[in-house]
């Protein structure tokens, strides 16, 4: 019969928890490296549904190029690694809250993102986008998409450009497989996505009538994210990233995961030599 009161108490506890969270965020030590070493593990936000950068294998393990990079960082710190699957909507929030120590999740650099998390340079990769459509679709340029339905994948950075600048009507899906199924079903004239993905499926007999129909838009560099306040950790990551390019580590991984060679990586290797 005292439930009214107990409920109030519950609500009060909930709000107390919220305040603790807010206060905790204020006090949180910004020395990520020290806290990682103290915990003995590094928590990294990664994609679990973006082949071949971060995806799930049949055993439930998350694998991919980005996971290899994250492992390399953990190895350098001499700690274990814990992978937390993230999506575009929460990857930066988790870093900001301190839930993850770092994030490496196919995030393209954008000035407004650099406001939220620190994105150390040099960037580890660059992705370019194109439109995959039927060879007889008559598409030649991005401007040809105007007013036409184009399948897209939620959270991709070039969606805005495709929709706003080129005037395409975006039909967005949860994953690229769903978007490709929609393309197959004739729900859109083409699918806008990463060139690397399309390069991977070009050999399939199923897609023989399709091709990348428009020139790839400028590659956008992908960066990993760390806490904004922790400049020390960001600087250390920068050094690691430089070494990755210098030693050709990312180029090697690119080969390992069957990704076509990206000019960006060669450029970076020459730059950091």
């Amino acid at each position: 019969m005292h439930n009214g009161k107990s409920l109030q108490r519950k609500l009060a506890a909930m709000f107390a928890g919220l305040f603790m969270l807010a206060a905790g965020a204020g006090w949180a030590q910004v020395d990520t490296m020290a806290s990682i070493k103290q915990k003995g593990k590094m928590v990294v936000g990664v994609k679990a549904d973006y082949k071949p950068f971060g995806y799930t294998d049949p055993a439930g393990k998350i694998v991919g190029l980005e996971i290899d990079l994250a492992n390399d960082i953990a190895r350098r710190l001499g700690v274990a690694i814990e992978l937390v699957p993230v999506v575009a909507a929460n990857r930066m929030e988790f870093v900001k809250q301190g839930r993850t120590d770092m994030m490496i999740a196919t995030m393209a650099y954008r000035p407004d993102r650099a406001e939220v998390v620190a994105i150390p340079q040099p960037y580890y990769y660059a992705g370019a986008a194109t439109v995959f459509a039927k060879k007889n679709s008559g598409l030649k340029n991005w401007t040809d998409l105007k007013g036409k339905p184009v399948c897209a994948v939620q959270g991709a950075y070039y969606n805005r450009k495709t929709g706003e600048e080129f005037g395409a009507q975006l039909v967005t899906f949860k994953g690229v497989t769903e978007a490709m199924a929609a393309l197959e079903g004739g729900n859109c004239v083409g699918t806008v996505f990463d060139t690397t993905f399309f390069a991977g499926i070009m050999g399939d007999a199923k897609w023989a009538d399709y091709a990348m129909m428009v020139p790839a838009i400028d590659p956008e560099p992908w960066g990993l994210g760390v806490r904004k306040e922790d400049t020390k950790f960001a600087a250390w990551i920068s050094d690691v990233s430089k070494e990755w390019h210098k030693t050709g580590f990312v180029l090697e991984l690119e080969k390992k995961w069957g990704i076509p060679q990206s000019p960006f990586l060669l450029e970076q290797q020459a730059k950091n030599k």
Partner: peptide
């Protein structure tokens, strides 16, 4: 909301396989 339950895993599988006929 990002919990790794069966639908999330199904999404990951379709991403890993990239096979439209599997959907």
């Amino acid at each position: 909301v990002g919990v790794s339950e069966v639908m999330t895993i199904t999404g990951r599988i379709t991403a890993a396989e990239a096979r439209t006929d599997l959907l």
